[in-house]
Every structure is written in structure tokens, then in C-alpha cells.
Amino acid sequence: MTASPSIHCRDLTLSYRRHPAVHHLTGTFAPGSFTAIVGPNGAGKSTLLKGIVGLVRPDGGTIEVTGARRSDIAYLPQQAALDRGFPMRVLDLAAMGLWRRTGPFRRIGAALLGEVEAALDAVGLSGFEDRMVGSLSGGQFQRALFARLLLQDARLILLDEPFAAIDARTADALLGLVGRWHGEGRTIIAVLHDFHAVRQHIPETLLIARDPIAWGPTSEVMTEANIARSRGLDEAFDTDAELCERPAA
């Protein structure tokens, strides 16, 4: 396998209408690392993922992804962003993961179809191929999205609240899958809310509350003191905020 991708953030600021969502972040997601991004609502967790994918442009500083082209990045957005009633078969949804190989025009032949079925099997959805996406429960829908991720076979995987609103059994199964990806040397970043799962399963953590609070091995980051500090974030941004004059690092 080729070298695992890494991401370097240098004094990174990402904002919406000039109000920063991620403020002066510097650090590195190491090659092959598995990092949880944790923090209160409005802390900029999703924005950081969008910045890495290139959906949000930095207002200041840089994000540099090495070892992965844009098409080597798999990004799982928050579920709320998708129309769960879309008239599409589960098979078609998973098969979108083949995009890098099929593009918009090439045929999906028997061999590729076999891969799609295997991916659905791996997430426990075999037999659901011809069901419509709209008939799936929240957890099943999330599994179908994971089948799509499997097929993308990406070197860098970004997950935005992948286990929100799904039951513990499904979450465990999917977390197992993500663990296997980690074992294969892929670089993984996941926005998570479940502190317990983070402490148990994720080696690295970035705790963020608009400004970075702590970044490193999970056991050193997820201390009571750090978590208390992250909760001090005032969720609503200050409408009369003054210009940030912190000098660039």
C-alpha cells in the first residue's frame, strides 16, 4: 500500500460570514492516525472536516493534505443533510462509492456489482439490495452509507457524527469496521459525541471549542479539566465581535 495521507493545519481559521468557526488551529493529523474530533455544539467540528474536503475555504492559514488527491478522500456528511426519502435503491446508493472507477458514464458490470453486494453484506445489509432507500430505518441508512464508504476504498476517511441517532449495536458494528480501516493504514478523522466510545476506541483526540483546547493521545486530551474548559464556549457568536488581531503564527 502507498504511504498513508496526512493533514497539516497551520494557523487555520475557517469562518461563516467572517465569524470564525475554527480559530487559529495548528497541528497535524499524522499518516495512518485515527483521530476523534470532540467539542460542544458550534465548536467548528463539522466545519473543520468541510475545510479538509475543500467545501469551506480557509479565511486564514492553510490546510495541506499530503499523500491523497481530492478523489482519495471519502467524506461522510451528517445524515440530516441527505433526503432519506430519495427514490433510489439501496444498491444504487452503495454503488455511488464506485464513482472513482466508473465515473459518470461507465457501465457497472457483473464484477463491480459483486463488489457492491459484498460491501452491503459487510455492513449487514445483504438482502436489502432492491429495497428503496426510503424504507430504511435511520441505522440501516447509515449502514448503507458505510457500504458506500467501503467501496470508495479511500486512503483518507472523514466521518461527521457517523453514529448519531443509531442504536448501540449498529454503532459497535460500524466502529469495528472503522477500526479495521485504521488497521489497514488508512488515515481516519471522526467527529464524535460519545466520550465513552472515544476514550475506549479512538487513539487520538482533538478537543476543540472554536479555539483548539487540546490535541494528542486521547488519554491526555480527555481530562476533566480540558472538557470543562471546552464547555466554557459561548455558543452564539458575538454579533458585535471586534476584529481578531492575533498575529499570524
Binding site: V53, G54, L55, R70, Y75, L82, F86, L93, M96, W99
Partner: peptide
């Protein structure tokens, strides 16, 4: 269809 269902995905690939 892809753009309709998941524009973010299409952009990311």
C-alpha cells in the same frame, strides 16, 4: 441523480 441526492459527495469525488 448523484448531484440531486448528495451534492457534497459528488463534489468530494
Amino acid at each position: 441523480v448523484a448531484e440531486c441526492f448528495d451534492p457534497g459527495f459528488l463534489r468530494s469525488v
